[in-house]
Design a protein around this nucleic acid. Structure first.
Lengths: 245, 245
DNA sequence: CGCATCATTGACTTCCGTCAAAGTGGGTGG
DNA sequence: CCACCCACTTTGACGGAAGTCAATGATGCG
């Protein structure tokens, strides 16, 4: 049985094919500053959106007022997609000068219902999002704080600079955002980052700008959890294709 | 700002509109027994699938041989969808007499590329999966073991019997499966279930059959984490719409 | 310059993972 | 039919990773 390495599952490709020209023609571009909301949770789903420049976060707020960052949004990311109804999360801007394309939902759907090519583009975009969210699930499952932070850094690196290594990566989100994204506390995020820095695996030119010095060791850490310490107790090695047909 | 309660986000509607008749005509039905694989990770994506009866799990295996249950699959759930390429996870059957409809992918895509109605159905199905995975992310984020287990029980109840309360719910998966689904150990799953049983919140007629006695308290537990103890430290109450436009 | 937000570090506590062991139950073969 | 076996389930004891509380630095904005 071949296996899906979690390490590789996390590094999804985020570049999406541009929505068909017909869609771009109905887009309006909106600009936001840090802290502004693109839409709120429970807002009627009037638009679909795509980040053009900058970054944002998609988040929910629990009854107790605590926050959950469901996803970070970077250029080319399509979000808020779905059919009739209301947005289930809020989208809030992280960096200044964030430009967002807005596609009126009704119009998008009308076009999708009459243009097979557009329909296909949207379908592919949805599949892309599915892949990404599945990777997110496998990432959140990682047991130790250091694994999740490492996975986050690798994901950030890939989404920000692609194959370009040796680059300084700007971190548009706060430590709080990272904590709420990784399901841990700010303090733990800081502690892990400090550890990684002291070990020479990463370095900071400023708090919001990181550079990965040792990719192998970083990947080692986020893959290490898989190697047996924490979760997922059923070793397939012990039950090799037990009941496979 | 209206908020998306995590509690309600979890209870997604899982009933999907049947794929258009044209799709059903190309389906073949396959039957499986407990433990068999519907497909393996990295298998070429030859089919899309839908559970008709029974249950299955979608899982990945890490490099270390530990397992990660990405999702449970119940009747009407469409899975393995996506475009060209390979499956990223494996699908394995949980209960005997599980019937699965298989839709040849190439054929599905050809139909989708020529039939706007089918294209729409598939799009809606993808959106459905997106909603479900987003709920999964917010669930995995829950800090404490008891919250995740409670959320799981509520999700199970909803997927199995819908609005019907006071029903005995069959649990098709093992405690190991639940643990690998919730990112915790079997022991912890057992302990939490025992606690809930001792508190009279749930009861078991057998290990694989549960009944929820006190819905309010169960929902209270999985919502309680939100009320402040664990994660998600940024209280929006403290920063009310700080930079909202 | 002063305030607010964010980031970092330390001390303490608790939850849950680990290890170990015993109990349960269904299926199979004698 | 019964007994054995195996996989699954449950419980207990212990330790460590990470959450909580608290306090001090940094950074940027008005």
């Amino acid at each position: 049985m071949e296996v899906a390495s979690i390490g590789s599952a996390i590094r999804t490709v985020y570049l999406q094919p541009a929505v068909a020209p017909t869609l771009e023609t109905i887009a309006t571009i909106e600009r936001y500053q840090h802290g502004q909301s693109i839409y709120h949770s429970a807002d009627p789903r009037q638009f679909w959106y795509r980040i053009l420049t900058g970054a944002a976060r998609k988040c929910a707020v629990t009854s107790g007022g605590t926050r959950c960052v469901v996803d970070f949004l970077f250029p080319q990311d399509l979000f808020g997609i779905g059919s009739e109804g209301r947005h289930r999360f809020a989208a809030e801007v992280l960096s200044n000068d964030t430009a967002v394309a807005r596609y009126p939902r009704r119009l998008v759907e009308r076009i999708a219902d009459s243009d097979l090519l557009v329909a296909r583009e949207i379908r592919e975009a949805a599949f892309q999002s599915l892949r990404h969210l599945e990777a997110r699930v496998t990432m959140l499952r990682l047991g130790r704080a250091s694994e999740r932070v490492s996975a986050f850094l690798l994901e950030l690196a890939e989404r920000r600079s692609g194959e370009q290594r040796d680059l300084e990566i700007a971190i548009p989100m706060s430590r709080y955002d990272i904590a709420d994204y990784l399901a841990m506390t700010v303090e733990t995020v800081c502690r892990v980052l400090t550890q990684l820095r002291l070990q020479g695996i990463i370095s900071f030119s400023s708090v919001r700008s990181v550079r990965i010095r040792d990719w192998d060791r970083l990947e080692g850490i986020c893959g290490a959890g898989s190697i047996g310490s924490t979760f997922g107790h059923t070793r397939i090695a012990l039950r090799p294709s037990a009941g496979d047909r």
